[in-house]
Design a protein around this nucleic acid. Structure first.
Lengths: 180, 180
DNA sequence: CTTTGCTATGCAACTATGTGCATACTGTTG
DNA sequence: CAACAGTATGCACATAGTTGCATAGCAAAG
């Protein structure tokens, strides 16, 4: 399970609470690995049991207390060991594509609508990527950690760009089908 | 759960056994929705319970008997109703990207190796798509069902092409990091 | 002064997916 | 003739992920 490793990776940057991590999985690392807050809290408990993170409660006034999680030496070792193992192909599960595959049994105006929504989602993601790139990486001298994040970001950008174009083309192809 | 719908979609084409379906989920529709044979058999049992497929055992000599599944009227209706509902964004879970994100804590030669493997996988998929396109779709007059499959295939092709290029660029960017 | 939203953590139940195994017969290859 | 690959179905267990809920206090907006 790579959720454990994704959490550990986030904690190499700085100690975080479950809440911080959940937000991180909704943005930055969440671009490559999505997880809900429930998943994060559950996995943190396991990591604590396995001794890969240290958890300390921090008193706060006016807000609920936070539990700050710090990666341990064995946590860092676990990340390194994981990095040596081959990685799985991301599993493909795309309803939109299945609907195209089933075009004859599908409501085409509804599909057109859903395709439009999907295009907007990719465009939104693309502009989010750009904002991050401009803000944190453009015209700055970078260390290895930052260079890695920039490579991931760059891959994300070109992927989203291409997906947008591909889906726009599909919209045109769909129009051809409707005209017959 | 869209596995049910993906199976029903396959059965709109022709009645199939679980074994046939499992193979289909390893190729054609499997390009957009992966499922193992166990998942397929389990889901078929549920579809049978819900009256969305009819299952009949066929006697065979020299081979185990097959159970042939045929989509029912309510099965077809279920596909149509599903087509009206908005579809989820495919969930993103890509270990390779997480490893780039964690570049400082990762073994870079191992990552380079894994990146090479991934590039080969995309190239293999691309040529599989091309073979199918040439064999079944090029220079033929197509009905709506076939046009839909061709659109899906065309999207698959441009996506795999772009992914290959993106990952090759990442290989170059990784080299830059290693040289410093 | 009530509603909404943010910070902060987590349980319980459910659905989905993956891994390993079991069975059983046939045809082909070495 | 033994070993392996292919056809065909399926159970049991384990891991992963989703949905809904519960708590609880503060700040800001209407």
């Amino acid at each position: 399970m790579a959720l454990a490793e994704a959490i550990l990776v986030c904690l190499t940057d700085r100690p975080m609470s479950g809440y911080d991590l959940a937000k991180t999985f909704d943005a930055s690392i969440g671009f490559f690995w999505r997880a809900s807050h429930q998943q994060v809290y559950r996995e943190l408990a396991r990591l604590r049991d396995r001794g890969l993170v240290d958890s300390t409660e921090i008193e706060q006034r006016g807000k609920p207390n936070r539990i700050l999680h710090t990666i341990t030496k064995s946590g860092e070792e676990a990340v390194y060991q994981w990095s040596l193992k081959p990685c799985k192909m991301p599993s493909i599960k795309d309803e939109l594509m299945v609907k195209f595959y089933a075009l004859e049994n599908v409501d085409i105006p509804a599909l057109r609508e859903q395709l439009g929504v999907r295009i907007d989602q990719h465009r939104a993601k693309l502009s989010a990527y750009f904002r991050i790139k401009e803000r944190f990486y453009d015209g700055k001298s970078l260390n290895v950690a930052q260079k890695g994040k920039l490579i991931a970001l760059t891959m994300g950008i070109s992927n989203e760009k291409e997906l947008t174009i591909t889906l726009e083309n599909a919209l045109v192809m769909l129009q051809d089908v409707e005209e017959t």
